[in-house]
Design a protein around this nucleic acid. Structure first.
Lengths: 261, 261
DNA sequence: CGATTCCTTGAGACAGCTCAATTTCGGTGG
DNA sequence: CCACCGAAATTGAGCTGTCTCAAGGAATCG
């Protein structure tokens, strides 16, 4: 899921005159076919076109704090953001990872119960909440797509509950990396069999917050997997998986259904 | 294997020749105002009335296994069911608790990825999947309500991720009991201030599977809370909460926003 | 090239797990 | 109604995986 860092991968986070080019017409939008607007007919897109607007966030910048009135809902066009909850004493749990095409906000409710944070540079396609709610009524295609996306997210959340509740630290790390590696492979940059290079946008601490671990445990487990040859590190944020089957064997999952084709 | 507490047991929940009487007209349905049909106009209810049918499950009986083609979707009318996932080696994680008015099944997808099990005697109000999907298109009131309920479940799942990932055993137990107690109180049987009697249909093992703990740890934590006067046990399955604020103080949550009114 | 941030590694502590009795509850049959 | 039985719950004792605290070591950025 994570890393997008699409365009040219260039030199880390620099080299970005792009940003302006993201603001395109819906018809040419990179997430046109996956986002909440995916099922809209051209005439419906027209209406969206009229009320949408873009917002940009730098890496590390908050998009919303828990309790905030967001005033808008949005689709992630570009970049990675996290949804997290923090307890009074500082314990933190990530509860969602927002990738391009994912939806932010809840129609019918003004304030988010979660913190939303840009992890990399993020571009959102926003709609003011009220008009969007109106849209849900007048445009069934949007409502249907939103229901489907919400149910997908619910499934993802439930899968993560198994990871959090029942897996060992080692299995948790393997599960996270498998998901990222598989996504990376699906997007097509690497074959499912060969070496997969995972550009991981999360710090050890963010991974720990995702997995319900401490950053030290994350570090130790990654080191262990490295020493066993299951993965290789290339700098701090790049992980190479020589054979994803070896990694998948460490997730504790059933495994048979796996392997994309 | 969970518990029986089956049909007659008489006394306790008695005074209702029930079961047969559950099969009523929608207008007199106990979950009329909370279920997926909540926002239907009388004429729309009419249509539901025509295609609904009831199913009953005994305590402990499976409603669906992971991978099954369910063929129907349903509302829980009465009783408690669980949604769970099991790993190859037997580790199990509950990912949802289905109480009256909750919805089972996913429109647009034939097979569940989860095991669904009746924990107490359960009555479902069912709709065959295809007609229901049709209904979603023709009856916006149902689609809207379903979206809202799904988003509520997503919130609940995310809240549970925090519980699973970051809370201590004691906090986990307190969180579970608070949720059940609050729901019990909301339904109106007890005031939010006074003693709340929680009829808990879950075995220690089921609670453990919910919380990502072992049954021994669950037992120990409940004993500890009992010894501190935060809760009282009345038999095996009934828990009395003298002051829910004391219990809520043990959840680790912020607490201020709490207390219904 | 210096500073900061992030990562790694170590040593000891402890929450929750495992294994193992024992007790209690709730239903059943005498 | 009471004694008995099995399932579930409790409790104990020791073990272990993960956390905590702490000290370096690398990578990235200005």
């Amino acid at each position: 899921m994570p890393f997008d860092r699409s365009p040219s991968k260039a030199v880390t986070t620099s080299s970005l005159p792009k940003l302006k080019n993201v603001e395109v017409e819906c018809s040419g939008c990179p997430i046109r076919h996956r986002a909440v607007c995916a099922r809209c007919a051209p005439t419906e897109l027209q209406r969206l076109e009229e009320i949408k607007y873009y917002r940009r966030y730098d890496a590390g910048q908050p998009i919303a704090w828990a309790g905030d009135d967001m005033g808008f809902v949005a689709s992630v066009v570009k970049g990675v953001a996290t949804i997290s909850q923090t307890m009074a004493d500082g314990r933190k749990q990530m509860v969602g990872l927002l990738l391009p095409s994912d939806f932010i906000g809840r129609p019918g409710r003004a304030s988010t119960p979660y913190d939303v944070t840009a992890v990399s540079e993020v571009t959102l396609c926003c709609f003011r909440r009220k008009p969007f709610e109106q849209l849900l009524v007048t445009t069934p295609a949007v409502a249907e797509r939103l229901l489907d996306m919400s149910l997908d997210e619910l499934d993802a959340a439930r899968e993560w509950m198994l990871v959090l509740g029942r897996k060992t630290a080692r299995e948790k790390i393997a599960s996270l990396l498998t998901i990222v590696a598989r996504r990376e492979a699906t997007v097509g940059l690497s074959a499912m069999k060969g070496r997969i290079v995972v550009e991981l946008p999360l710090t050890r601490e963010a991974m720990a917050d995702y997995l319900g671990l401490t950053l030290e445990t994350v570090s130790r487990q990654i080191s262990a997997l490295k020493n066993e040859g299951i993965l290789e590190l290339d700098g701090k944020r790049r992980i190479v998986v020589p054979d994803i089957r070896l990694l998948m064997a460490e997730t504790g999952d059933d495994m048979d259904g796996g392997l994309i084709a």
